[in-house]
């Protein structure tokens, strides 16, 4: 049983601890954590501010080295001593909590940056960027500078950038935090559609309980001081889910349960 589960692992976090050394002393951001992300699943990390969601995502992305424990991506350990195995992260796309667009690139060049690094021709890059702009709903802004866009539009461009090279695993840190409720719902639907169509593995961080329940196969509930996983909840609703799934009693039940756990 265990072996089977591990074989289907996109990312495996085993016995991982993360401690930040600061001038005021060490901060334990994450205590011994085990979490296998299954291949093709939609996992959502939910928890109060400062509980270590971003830290956990950054550990998966190979942007942070665990103080102890092992992070594996596609069965390959991410770290060999101090060195990161760059091959292991090649199939991951990261959407950061801030959009992190390069101000000297136009929106389409920002979106196509990963393709440029991979040596794709300018013409193909342009086409792909245009396509993605339409997908995330910022068509018409291809030639603008990032500073000419609103925060929410910039975040959508950064999602498009992560999608541009079609990574198998998508790690998203509060990607819709800067959006209004309507756009947020639309983006949730769109993300679900992309996920179903491309059979990606997605790990998404959010503060929003309805968003977590709507999107997730599994909601991973974290708590703070020190950061740890307190519960993993399966969300059974069939796919594709429509926005009105939120009205169902089971949905409310799960949401209420999560809210209750978050308050304690």
């Amino acid at each position: 049983m265990m072996v089977d589960a591990d074989a289907g692992c996109a990312i495996r976090i085993a016995g991982v601890e993360k401690q930040f050394e600061t001038p005021q002393g060490p901060i334990r951001a994450l205590t011994r954590t085990n979490f296998p992300v299954r291949k093709g699943e939609f996992a959502v990390l939910l928890g109060p501010s400062g509980c270590g969601k971003t830290t956990m995502l950054r550990l998966m992305a190979g942007l942070e080295r665990p103080t102890s424990g092992v992070v594996e991506v596609g069965g390959r350990p991410l770290w060999h001593d101090e060195r990161r195995d760059d091959g292991a992260v090649a199939n991951m796309g990261v959407v950061f909590q801030e959009a992190n667009l390069f101000p000297w690139l136009t929106i389409e060049d920002n979106i196509a940056l990963p393709l440029k690094l991979r040596g794709m021709t300018r013409k193909l890059r342009r086409e792909r960027a245009r396509e993605l702009c339409r997908l995330v709903g910022i068509a018409g802004f291809e030639a603008r500078w990032p500073r000419e866009l609103s925060g929410g539009m910039r975040q959508r461009a950064s999602i498009a950038r992560a999608l541009s090279y079609d990574p198998e695993i998508l790690l998203m840190d509060e990607p819709f935090g800067a959006l209004d409720a309507i756009t947020r719902d639309a983006m949730n639907l769109e993300l679900q559609r992309i996920w179903i169509a491309t059979s990606k593995t997605i790990v998404l961080v959010t503060h929003s309980i309805p968003e977590a329940v709507f999107l997730a196969d599994r909601v991973v509930l974290l708590s703070s001081r020190p950061g740890r996983i307190v519960e993993i909840i399966d969300v059974p609703f069939a796919r594709p889910r429509e926005t009105d799934v939120r009205g169902q009693p089971e949905f409310q039940e799960i949401a209420d349960h999560l809210r209750h756990r978050l308050e304690h």
Binding site: A61, G62, L63, V89, V94, F96, N100, F102, P114, L117
Partner: peptide, 9 residues
């Protein structure tokens, strides 16, 4: 910005 490039190898 640095981390974007890091994540893109």
């Amino acid at each position: 910005h640095r981390e974007v490039l890091q994540s893109l190898n």
